[in-house]
Design a protein around this nucleic acid. Structure first.
Lengths: 119, 119
DNA sequence: TTTATATATGAATGATTGCTCATATATTCA
DNA sequence: TGAATATATGAGCAATCATTCATATATAAA
């Protein structure tokens, strides 16, 4: 009875799940990073910074958005340690904190591309 | 004058950026997937499904949430092709569409872990 | 010092979103 | 067929969020 066997394993997996799912606290950091990536403006900022460090004004100019809006978004990215900043002359230059971010973007693109091949 | 050289390269990069940044249309799919990942409930659903396919009721029970809420979230994940479903007896079983998703989660955890080591 | 420039920040606002409640749909069982 | 069970869905609501506007802070230039 292979069908019942499957059912037993399923019940076992189900029981384990309820105990072993990560807690909110454990998942919070990850969810917050995904939240940060779930906004077009922030994604564009990150892609821009992946090419070269940029000042706030340069980013605003590149994305054709207000200085204030970019500054607000940068502060969110900074709080999550996704970017860091340093004064350079009279500007403040932002840069990506590490390259993991781009790897994640690439993985996601891969998912999307594989998806388009379904039909 | 290495300092000026840097400046010239920076200006060039800046100029290229403004032309080569992906369009909203290009980024839309990626941003929507990150939006989906940017919610605790949906992340937990995905983690649960990474262990075994589950019915709507089983997910609701596992996460201790209402059937309606889970159903709503599943429909979002399904629209993005992150999960698929199939009737099995009188239930509908959901499963992850592909394993890329878990790779992305792992990469993100790596970023967080590396981050904690900064001080 | 004064003036100009770059960035940050707080309040207000419109839009989006996740949940609940009520109900519709669909399948199984008697 | 009719009752019971599982899932889906639409409307409503409270909370979150991205942007704007006005203004504060900080550095550089004159």
């Amino acid at each position: 009875m292979p069908e019942q066997n499957f059912e037993v394993e399923h019940q076992q997996a189900l029981h384990n799940l309820k105990q072993n799912l990560p807690s909110d606290d454990d998942l919070d950091a990850m969810v917050n990073i995904f939240k940060a990536f779930g906004d077009m403006t922030r994604v564009k900022i990150i892609l821009a910074l992946s090419e070269t460090p940029l000042s706030v004004g340069e980013i605003a100019d590149t994305l054709d958005m207000s200085q204030s809006s970019i500054s607000h978004q940068l502060s969110i990215l900074k709080q999550l340690n996704l970017v860091s900043n340093a004064r350079r002359g009279r500007n403040i230059h932002y840069r990506l904190s590490d390259q993991h971010i781009l790897t994640i973007f690439k993985q996601t693109q891969d998912h999307i591309i594989e998806d388009e091949n379904d039909f």
